[in-house]
Design a protein around this nucleic acid. Structure first.
Lengths: 198, 198
DNA sequence: GTCTTAAATGATTCACAATTCAATATTACC
DNA sequence: GGTAATATTGAATTGTGAATCATTTAAGAC
């Protein structure tokens, strides 16, 4: 019997990330993914049952890793909510630092998948939102966060801002140093743009 | 000779907005748009030369209106930068209040169009970003806005947050009253979540 | 009422790319 | 080095839905 050589399963996923990032899901052809992966078109179907299956796999991998790390942060009792907020931002950026193309796919295709309720994306995303909400609620209870602000709304706003910056960074990683982005987001989310005279 | 009856050109655009909002651009069939517009499939092609032509027309209409209104705000000399920031937010939300479906299409499909550089979307969007940047710069110069914050970054962050909230609102207009959203965004962008003891 | 001309129709055509599968190559084991 | 079992290939198939166009409908002119 013959053994599978190399790791085509992984090669295909990595190729797909690159191709999806460059052209978007719908404009990406399986034949192109196969070419980039160094594999015949038909071989893609030995590992994945459809094109959709590939994106879903990509999102599963990303979210699996993210949710595990995020879980650990929320549960810590030695961190104040402000620091937890910072940690979430760090986790997100760290996850994508090694692979900007993955960030682009993540940001660009997630809405489609959420809308179509395909795979586990909805479940994972809701989990993430709940977790963020929990941290914010904790901050309000401890009297650190502003009670005038609607928690859900703040959460959605910051999440949206994060996505946008992740995207910008991923498109031109050299131009926007990641550390500057992190620092700024953390500051803006907490203090806004106005100068506060204390 | 026969005259065009009703206004099928508009009916098709409006149908397309509804169908795109519900299913996303790629999942939307011309035949469905035609059905919703109360028109035969072939008739769509009397008014638009392709499916893509329809989305581009939708974005042209939206951006044309937006950019005109936004221009007027920036040019005013009787408004401080903080108020101008508020006005931008108002203009965006007001534009979509009457038509949540349009907001959904706007938020969901814009990235695709930007990436493919189709139509005028890139031009309009860049114009919008420049304009926002101008206001922020003005605020910094006048000593109202925080100099520690990277202007571009703040602009992208807030833009992303706005998009996210616009989307959330459009999906369930009853649940999130628009006025609450506006108030909160304005406050958050300026003050962040932390309580500031003055 | 008939004629001319443009508008409208929707079944048919066509293009594209996802998926399949018969043929071929590779490996392990004897 | 022969054979069985499995992996790989890429040309052929297939499904889908965008776009076309021969035909029908109807408005306005006379």
């Amino acid at each position: 019997m013959r053994k599978k050589e190399g790791n085509k399963e992984t090669a295909i996923i990595e190729a797909a990330v690159r191709v999806f990032a460059e052209n978007g899901y719908h404009q990406s052809k399986i034949s192109k993914i196969a070419e980039v992966a160094g594999v015949a078109t038909g071989s893609v179907y030995l590992y994945y049952k459809s094109k959709e299956d590939i994106v879903l796999k990509i999102f599963d991998l990303v979210w699996m890793k993210l949710s595990k790390e995020l879980q650990q942060v929320v549960q810590r009792t030695d961190m104040d909510p402000g620091t937890k907020l910072d940690s979430i931002i760090d986790i997100l950026f760290d996850s994508f630092t090694v692979n900007p193309a993955l960030a682009i796919v993540f940001v660009n295709e997630q809405n489609q998948l959420l809308q179509q309720e395909k795979g586990n994306v909805v479940k994972f995303y809701k989990g993430f939102l709940d977790l963020a909400e929990e941290i914010l609620r904790e901050g309000v209870e401890k009297g650190i966060f502003n009670t005038n602000i609607d928690i859900r709304l703040f959460r959605d706003f910051v999440t949206g801002g994060l996505r946008a910056l992740l995207h910008e960074w991923a498109r031109r990683p050299e131009e926007y140093p990641l550390n500057r982005i992190r620092q700024n987001i953390k500051y803006i989310a907490k203090n806004g743009i106005l100068i506060h005279h204390t």
